[in-house]
Write a protein that binds this DNA or RNA. Structure first.
Lengths: 331, 331
DNA sequence: CTGAAAGCGCTTACAG
DNA sequence: CTGAAAGCGCTTACAG
């Protein structure tokens, strides 16, 4: 258990002031080559490692980004988090993870409280802000990027795909493949991205003269599962769009337990193309939102804000064109 | 952009000293009910949020745990990280993520340097320490838990499955299903968990009178892919154990491109059972290490160390019995 | 180009 | 039970 080495130790060793040592290490202007070498040698010899907590406290910048997520199990989150966090790290920012701990799909006060206690330079959120938190978050004075969500309703910076479009191409695919009694299985009834996909589906179906019946719109996180499947089977539904791939897999399993064979006369479409992320064989038909580009764009938007000279930035959307990936879960 | 509210503001508002306010908020003994209420009311009114950086600097405990990972794309990492990080959060610890940024599968000095700059209370690592880092890490005085890896060779605390056993049951399965020319596709030739699985396979095969030929042991992160597949095809290999499921999927895809049908006369087995994590249909035969229990055990071991009264703790292994999950990738 | 002093927001150790 | 002082390890702002 070594004693901690501080700037003071380096100062003593080199005969310089703490101040000068700090300036050299932070590459602030004004020091001689000679001083620089002495400092670097001493740091190396003593094994000096800066204390970012102390540095952050004084300077006001912790060089951290908070990442707010729901769960990392869904590869859409983990895949994009992987890309984003590595990009931040390369730029000298570390990521602190905050989950909603299964509370809700929203950023609430409790969550923001624990985030702000860490004084991050920026917040990248996979979660939408709760309605009563929008002002609070904007007033917090910390760059806040909503990732995979539309920022516009909150007048916040969002990086998201055109989800209505995604829902539409899924709907068009189902129609083109001859499915006619379509259901939608979302996550939560009040999460915008979930509703956008639903709306896209509805629009595509309507254009084809098919109705998305209200009784065939479900929210898997809010409703009981068995009755939902019962209803789908009883009503002879023959095509389903699911909010994401994992939901699609859960639903497919249940349908197959009921003797329905998915892929032929019964079609299921998901969202996110997680199979591709894990190099899996393409089984599920799904909508790919271009996750890699998407994640990189999200990281870049945040890095821009972090290094931004502008104090105020307009909210904006980065829109990527989604595309359908055909698998064996639709004919 | 609200002005930051500090303890001092609360002190002024209540007419108490900063000290007393701090004591109330940290629930240290000795204060009256009346004082407590005044403080809490003031904090609520002004929206006080503690600065954990300042707190950590003074107290020596940052209430953070560093998580060192390779990538989050592999669900084995993201699934367990999700469980572990949520458990830490519930106990008041936040997780700071550190990746090797594609450098190597090891914890090297550069990585430890950035970790230590954050002064975490503990380090949970999915990566093994580089050989020359073992002493450094032990001397750092920060509890270090190697997760999913054997700690014994480093005399460190490890939480891992019996990987030799896992390799063995995979080998036994391949033999039982009638495969006779077996290959192993690992990740890195010098990562212990990779070698352990290989050894288990070898033992099982040997017991069945089958040899695991050296020329049929590959390391996908170190060798060129195409020649590897060429060799497998040319030598009429009929069964493969892959170090993990993702490698298995990649290999299966390549084999099928070569016209081989996996699942019948050609068997492939993976490791981790990631399909189950994402509720996917069971296609791949794989070894499940019981990831949920495993992750919970890892978090608990760390939490024990963090709250531990003992200064020195013996290194130990938490061993879980793995089991084989039969899918359609073996007959 | 370098240094002495102040201070970031807390908690600790001590005094009363 | 409460307060005044010191200090965690840095960086800033200023003086020379």
């Amino acid at each position: 258990m070594k004693k901690k080495v501080t700037l003071r130790d380096i100062a003593e060793k080199t005969g310089l002031s703490v101040n000068t040592v700090s300036r050299v290490l932070n590459k602030k202007p004004y020091y001689t080559k000679e001083v620089e070498e002495k400092v670097n040698a001493a740091c190396k010899e003593l094994g000096y490692i800066v204390d970012m907590n102390a540095s952050g406290l004084r300077s006001g910048s912790t060089r951290t980004v908070a990442i707010l997520y729901d769960d990392l199990i869904n590869p859409f989150y983990s895949y994009t988090t992987d890309i984003i966090s590595k990009r931040f790290e390369k730029r000298g920012y570390n990521c602190i993870m905050f989950s909603n701990n299964d509370r809700s799909p929203y950023v609430d006060y409790e969550l923001m409280r624990s985030v702000m206690a860490r004084k991050p330079d920026g917040i990248l959120s996979f979660l939408e802000p709760a309605a009563d938190m929008v002002d609070f978050i904007r007033n917090a004075g910390i760059p806040f990027v909503i990732f995979g969500r539309d920022g516009a309703p909150y007048q916040m910076v969002g990086v998201d795909a055109d989800e209505v479009y995604g829902g539409r191409i899924a709907g068009e695919h189902l129609l083109a493949r001859g499915y006619r009694k379509i259901a939608y299985i979302g996550s939560w009834h009040d999460v915008k991205v979930c509703l956008d996909r639903q709306r896209g589906l509805q629009e595509a179906l309507a254009a084809g003269g098919v109705e998305l019946k209200e009784e065939h719109v479900f929210y898997i996180r809010e409703q009981e599962f068995a009755p939902m499947i019962d209803k789908i089977v009883a009503d002879d539904v023959d095509g389903i769009l699911c909010f994401n791939d994992i939901i699609a897999f859960i639903v497919i399993e249940a349908l197959e337990e009921r003797g329905l064979e998915v892929g032929g006369d019964f079609g299921v479409v998901g969202f996110d193309n997680i199979q591709q992320m894990m190099r899996m064989p393409r089984f599920l038909t799904t909508v790919d939102v271009g996750s890699r580009d998407f994640a990189e764009a999200g990281a870049d938007v945040m890095l821009d804000l972090l290094s931004g000279s502008e104090e105020e930035r307009p909210s904006f959307r980065e829109t990527h064109k989604s595309f359908l990936v055909k698998g064996r879960s639709t004919r």
